[in-house]
């Protein structure tokens, strides 16, 4: 009987003990968000807004179309990408860039920093 695999790849977060399992065909962002929302922020899920920018430090992956305002061609060569448009093709080690603005309350000064 065919055994169902419970994951295809392991993604690790650089400088952290955190690691998580994901399946082929799921973007890094979609894989992280449900359980690792503290490490990454989701925005448009479509490669346009740039808040989920990461650097892949090791592993193979494919990327979809991403706004060059947020990932230049030069950056792309250095492993920078948007997690929403990054599909793992092996285990990965990633570094979230936290291009995340401060929490709304902090940004607009109605919550204590």
């Amino acid at each position: 009987m065919a055994q169902m695999k419970n994951c295809d790849f392991i993604i690790r977060i650089h400088d952290s003990e955190k690691k998580f399992a994901t399946r082929s065909g799921t973007s890094v962002l979609s894989a992280l968000m449900p359980t690792h929302g503290d490490d990454i922020t989701a925005g448009c899920y479509s490669g346009g807004c740039g808040v989920c920018k990461i650097q892949v430090l090791s592993g193979r992956y494919a990327t979809g179309v991403m706004s060059k305002v947020h990932v230049t061609d030069a950056e792309k060569k250095d492993g920078y990408c948007l997690a929403c448009k990054t599909m793992p093709e092996s285990d990965l080690i990633i570094r979230p860039l936290r291009k995340v603005p401060p929490k709304i309350g902090h940004r607009f000064g109605y919550l204590a920093r």
Partner: peptide, 26 residues
Amino acid sequence: WTIDNLAHAAFSQSLRVPESFLGTYT
């Protein structure tokens, strides 16, 4: 509306304002 009442101003049913809503633009 005052910003401390942002939840009611922005999303008056769930009172939840996604961090992306006033932080990501194109």
